[in-house]
Computed example of a mutant assay.
Amino acid sequence: MSTLLQLDTITKQYKNQLAVDHISFSIQKGEICGLVGENGAGKTTLLRILSGLILPSSGNILKDSPYRIGALIESPALQPNLSAEGNLHYIALQLGLKDKKQMIQKALETVGLSDVDPHKKSKDFSLGMRQRLAIAMAILDQPDFLILDEPINGLDPAGIRDMRNIILNLRENYHMTILISSHILSELELVVDRYIIMHKGKVLRQFSKTELQQELEEKLYLSTDKPEKTKSLLGNQDIPFQEEEDYFILPKETDIMPLITQLIHEHIELKEIFNKKIAFESYYLQLIQEGETTHELS
């Protein structure tokens, strides 16, 4: 993949609030990238900067070549008394598009609204239909880069499934690069190629879907009555480990019998031992907690 854009120490300051704090990362052409963070992490501010709605206080967005942007940020900006086609015609006039009728029909088909009653006003649409119409408006001129802020928020399971299929279709058949902000981590796992985790205006971590799966794979947990001596034993046996509360976390494939033998020899009581797969939500909350600790220390 080649790079679509690169953020170079982007900052956004609102009076005394630093909403986006020296953020740097790149987005590759053709990827679906998930932006994750709690409320107030700076996600929407960053998306508004990327979409050109606001300017950063400092920093640069570097581009290898010009590209068209489509965006759905916060609530869909629909004309309530217009139909789906009417809303798209309104956008087509603003964009000065040629072949309006053909492009409108293609956008409606892409989001599954081509069979909707042409006289039905958008104010009478369901939430799912409004979200799909908003995406049709964002992709009307077939942008290279699509920005979606919480596109499945409030949708029922069927609506979430439909939105997922639309997003995957836009990448596979229209070759769009897509950046999605969402709180629904389980759904992001089904569509994104890479994650960017934000906390208090900063980027905590970036990792690919493959790297996340490696982080979340099943691991071996054990606890003892003498954690410091246990830590020394693990180091002496060159067993990689992490610590979480009262547990040592080891790779699943660890040959545990030599370690248990050594624990017995050193009169260390093995309190618990079990396999466990980490959920994305737990991993994310752990990252946020670590980020909070780092923020307090700084």
Rank of each mutant, 00 (worst) to 15 (best):
N81C: 10
T45Q: 10
D124Q: 15
D64F: 12
E150N: 10
Y90R: 01
M137W: 07
S122W: 03
V36C: 02
K123Q: 13
A41I: 07
L55G: 14
T45S: 06
I61C: 07
D115G: 07
L82V: 01
R48D: 13
N87L: 07
L46V: 08
Y67K: 08
N60K: 15
L97Q: 02
P157G: 06
G59Q: 04
E109D: 14
E85V: 06
G59M: 07
L72C: 05
L50C: 11
Q102C: 02
L72R: 01
V116F: 02
M129R: 01
P66G: 11
K106R: 15
I139D: 07
I61P: 00
S83H: 09
S83W: 03
P56A: 11
I49L: 05
I73S: 09
S65R: 15
S57K: 01
L108T: 00
I152M: 14
A84S: 09
P76T: 10
I69S: 03
L113C: 07
I135W: 05
R132A: 01
L95D: 09
G52Q: 00
L113E: 07
S122F: 00
Q131Y: 04
G154F: 10
E109V: 10
S114V: 04
E38H: 12
I147E: 06
K43V: 02
G59E: 10
L47W: 10
D149G: 04
L47V: 09
K106V: 12
G42K: 08
S122M: 04
I54V: 11
L47R: 12
T110N: 13
K123L: 08
Q142P: 07
K121S: 09
E74P: 05
K98H: 13
S57F: 04
Q102G: 11
A134W: 07
A134N: 00
L47G: 05
D115P: 05
N87S: 01
K98F: 14
Q131C: 06
L53T: 14
L47C: 05
K63V: 13
D141N: 13
P118A: 08
L148C: 00
G52R: 06
L113F: 06
I104G: 04
L88I: 00
G86D: 11
P118G: 04
N60E: 15
Y90M: 09
Q79Y: 13
Q142H: 14
K98P: 12
G86Q: 05
L127P: 03
I160W: 03
D115C: 12
N60T: 14
I139T: 06
R130H: 08
G96T: 07
L35C: 07
S122P: 04
M103A: 14
L50T: 03
G70A: 05
P80H: 11
A92R: 01
L53I: 15
Q94C: 12
G52C: 12
K63F: 13
V36D: 10
E150A: 05
S114I: 10
E74G: 08
K100E: 15
L95N: 08
L82G: 00
L113W: 05
P76K: 08
A41Q: 11
I160C: 02
